[in-house]
């Protein structure tokens, strides 16, 4: 049995465009029953999205897309993303804010602010003045500092010619040539270990995306789950990953990886109830599955 879901998408707290509330509302309109926001490496959208989902009558799963790497600092370096799904119950009280990955997300926000200010400081004075006329950006606390997509839109709006400069510069944020090895220098296995230590379920995001297929296969073997349906997978690719997940007894999910910058790709299938039960650490009764 399946539940209509979208368990992977982004908001303006990372490289999406929607507010958490808009993100939830869009999925409510589509009849989604269980959703997650999985921003890159931070969970700033989780609380407001969870509140909106509660008002909309949807099951909300706290999540994050954790950035790790294959061949970090070596030839063939590429990002590898592992989704972390927390039980709904971590929203009770202040449990979420105590999670290791949540706190890591606060650091990510601080480092992002530092990186953007570094880029700004390298601009000509008139360009810097154009982007941040009153010098307000540096005064913003890191959690409210414009995230990646918001910065891109700001740059394009103020001076389109600076777009490529910012785009090229920002890649240092994750890359081994940049200042954040301690945050993003993880192997996928290390990311999986951190996710599990945090009490969450690890799911390999869009597994077809990675260039090193042999290494990806090993990580999939290690993981609890696979993201099967996503806008990055063609139908036949998704079906092959689903077959793989079922053959190996792994959990699998159905999502969009929506960034609000292209036509929304509705996941063609739901997520198995079994997967949701594993994430939420609870058993759903039949009548509840039929009515959520």
């Amino acid at each position: 049995m399946y539940v209509q879901t979208d368990l992977h998408g982004h908001t303006l707290h990372s490289d999406g465009r929607a507010t958490p509330e808009e993100y939830v509302e869009f999925r409510r309109q589509l009849g989604m029953k269980a959703i997650a926001v999985a921003d890159h490496d931070l969970m700033a959208a989780v609380r407001p999205a969870a509140a909106a989902a509660a008002r909309a009558g949807m099951l909300f799963i706290p999540a994050m897309e954790v950035t790790a790497h294959l061949h970090y600092g070596a030839s063939g370096e590429e990002q590898f993303h592992v989704l972390a799904y927390y039980p709904h119950a971590v929203l009770e009280g202040f449990q979420l804010e105590q999670k290791f990955l949540y706190k890591r997300g606060l650091k990510v926000q601080e480092r992002w602010k530092e990186l953007v200010l570094e880029w700004l400081s390298g601009l000509a004075a008139e360009d810097r003045e154009l982007l941040d006329p009153a010098g307000e950006l540096s005064k913003k606390p890191a959690p409210t500092f414009p995230a990646l997509q918001s910065m891109i839109l700001l740059v394009v709006e103020k001076k389109r010619e600076l777009f490529e400069s910012f785009r090229d510069f920002h890649q240092r944020f994750w890359h081994s040539s940049g200042p954040n090895k301690d945050l993003f220098g993880w192997t996928p296995e290390e990311a999986i270990a951190a996710i599990r230590a945090d009490g969450a379920v690890d799911v390999i995001a869009h597994p077809t995306r990675y260039r090193d297929k042999e290494r990806t296969a090993k990580v999939i073997d290690e993981a609890k789950g696979i993201e099967v349906y996503t806008s990055r997978h063609k139908a036949e690719v998704a079906e092959s990953f689903r077959a793989l997940a079922e053959a190996k007894g792994k959990h699998w999910t159905s999502s969009s990886d929506d960034h609000q910058n292209a036509k929304y790709a509705m996941p063609p299938c739901g997520t198995p109830v079994r997967t949701l039960e594993r994430i939420c650490k609870q058993t759903f009764k039949l009548e509840s599955i039929l009515t959520i």
């Binding site: 969870a50 509140a51 989902a53 509660a54 099951l59 929203l91 759903f284 009764k285 599955i289 959520i292």
Partner: peptide, 9 residues
Amino acid sequence: IKVRLLTGV
């Protein structure tokens, strides 16, 4: 569960 699931707040 419909209610329990959906009342996160």
